[in-house]
């Protein structure tokens, strides 16, 4: 940057203020479009071009991200829906002018203090809205790509498709995808995650971004080479193997679980799976919170359960295991030992 381009310390002129405001307006509109659920591929390309066009645009978009980040604690609360209802209730209370007594002060920290406690980064969130293919909670979708490759998206998942003349590349943005590659002698097939690159060697495999910042991969046919992003170490997984890796290393492979393949059929197949893990899998497919009491968390589960009807899956669990499912609130269910907490409802 030359001296002439350095920002002057004086107050911004009316012109730059106008330009800044215009950029903010445009950024707000892009945000509204990209997250609407109606954005298409060309919208995303147009947004990227807009973003690349000027520093002012990027600064305005940064502001959009800052505002969105504020919603993270709500988005990751046990049930965002009932959490935001609090605002509605508060408004009603305000209208009724109800007096409030006996509540502690809030410490007066104001708008500036801001605790972000979830590791989901906003860029990932923004990328998911803008991704080429995405699903909402509870949805499983099959997509056919131009070369005949088939990709299944699990609940709340998103990926981008980046096919180049020399390489077929998918980028997993969030969630879970299952891939059945089509043969192409000229172009290799890779899936990129933040933790590394998976190179498919004629194959059916599952890739999932885990909440703890690792990538999970399970191979059902052919083989997949894992190359970690930071350390660059490689490892080849054969059919019926699964593993997890971070940017710096790959865990030793284990036998691939049938559950990681069966979800594409809308089924969770449990073979000697702890109840807590079954619940975690089901929870991915439901809105709201699903809790498991510690006394029953380690019960072993065998059987297949529908992912597209998790309420039914919970009923099925309660018929095969000594557990009961309580729906305390529409968005709050808990799996408990049978006969526990049989207190009369309030």
């Amino acid at each position: 940057m030359s001296a002439a381009e350095l920002p002057l310390p004086s107050a911004p002129s009316a012109d730059t203020r106008d330009a800044k405001h215009r950029a903010m307006q445009e950024a707000a509109k892009w945000f509204a479009l990209l997250r609407s659920g109606e954005a298409v591929h060309t919208d995303r390309a147009a947004w990227e071009a807009w973003l690349a066009a000027s520093e002012a645009h990027r600064a305005a978009w940064g502001c959009v991200e800052q505002v969105s980040r504020r919603f993270e604690p709500i988005q990751s609360s046990v049930d965002p829906r009932s959490t935001v209802e609090v605002l509605q209730t508060a408004r009603h209370h305000a209208l009724r002018r109800r007096t409030l007594l006996g509540l502690a002060t809030c410490g007066g920290t104001g708008l500036l203090s801001w605790a972000v406690w979830r590791h989901t980064t906003l860029p990932a969130m923004a990328m998911a809205w803008a991704a080429d293919h995405r699903t909402s909670v509870g949805e499983v979708r099959e997509v056919s790509l131009s070369d005949g490759t088939r990709v299944w998206l699990g609940s709340a998942s998103a990926f981008n498709e980046d096919y180049q003349p020399g390489l077929r590349r998918l980028r997993l943005v969030t969630g879970d995808i299952f891939i059945e590659t089509a043969a192409d002698a000229r172009r290799g097939f890779v899936v990129d995650t933040p933790q590394g690159r998976l190179r498919a060697l004629g194959t059916r495999f599952n890739v999932r971004l885990e909440d703890d910042g690792q990538t999970f991969v399970a191979v059902y046919e052919g083989a997949v080479e894992v190359r970690t992003a930071t350390s660059g170490s490689t490892r080849v997984l054969r059919a019926r193997e699964q593993t997890r890796f971070s940017g710096s290393g790959v865990e030793d492979p284990a036998l691939a679980a049938p559950a990681r393949e069966s979800w594409t059929q809308g089924l969770l197949i449990a073979q000697d799976m702890p109840l807590a893990q079954v619940a975690a899998e089901l929870a991915r497919y439901r809105r709201g919170h699903l809790a498991v009491a510690p006394e029953v968390a380690d019960l072993r589960v065998f059987g297949s359960f529908p992912l597209n009807d998790t309420d039914r899956a919970l009923v099925m669990l309660s018929t095969v295991l000594p557990v009961q499912v309580r729906h305390t609130l529409p968005w709050w269910s808990s799996i408990e030992p049978k006969g526990k907490g049989a207190a009369p409802s309030p």
């Binding site: 504020r70 919603f71 604690p73 709500i74 609360s77 959490t83 935001v84 609090v86 605002l87 508060a90 809030c106 920290t109 708008l111 203090s113 801001w114 605790a115 406690w117």
Partner: peptide
């Protein structure tokens, strides 16, 4: 954290 978020929003 959630309360603070709701209040700010």
């Amino acid at each position: 954290i959630v309360l603070q978020t709701l209040q700010d929003i």
